[in-house]
């Protein structure tokens, strides 16, 4: 069985999903995650690769109780916009927590987890999720 589209997409996203690789515009300083080829702010094509910090805080969150079919095993689950310590925002599941402990501003760290599985015989897509940091 060939599942080339899903495999190539999963492979293409490895640098950002595994190592949080972003890029920073050398002209205006804007950071892009995932990396972009042209700066949406100043149209520059001159970028430097950077790695994002692994800690930040919850900017906003919600609980998903009716997910799409590929995430039904995880339901219900928390998903949040995380503001990393350098100001970059990204979307991530929040795992290993009691939903009652979730608050805007709570410190979190990114961890490496399975994101999605293409059935029991397909590719496993790994990437980042976040857990609460003990205060």
């Amino acid at each position: 069985m060939v599942t080339a589209v899903k495999v190539s997409k999963t492979w293409r996203e490895i640098p950002q999903r595994y190592r949080l690789e972003a890029n920073k515009c050398n002209n205006c300083g804007k950071i892009f995650f995932p990396p972009r080829l042209i700066c949406s702010n100043c149209k520059s094509r001159d970028f430097a690769p950077i790695k994002l910090p692994k800690e930040g805080k919850i900017y906003s969150f919600t609980i998903i109780r009716t997910p799409s079919s590929e995430f039904k095993d995880y339901s219900p689950f928390a998903i949040a916009i995380i503001e990393l310590d350098n100001g970059v925002k990204l979307m991530s599941q929040v795992v290993d927590c009691d939903f009652n402990d979730l608050e805007i501003g709570t410190r979190v760290k990114l961890v490496f987890r399975k994101i999605q599985e293409d059935g029991s015989s397909g590719i496993i897509a790994y990437g980042y999720k976040c857990v609460l940091v003990k205060s």
């Binding site: 795992v95 290993d96 961890v111 987890r113 399975k114 496993i124 790994y126």
Partner: peptide, 16 residues
């Protein structure tokens, strides 16, 4: 292990 953990994700945490 939680649903999203396997020996790879655990190995990554150990390595880091």
């Amino acid at each position: 292990p939680y649903l999203d953990q396997d020996s790879v994700t655990i190995g990554v945490e150990e390595a880091q």
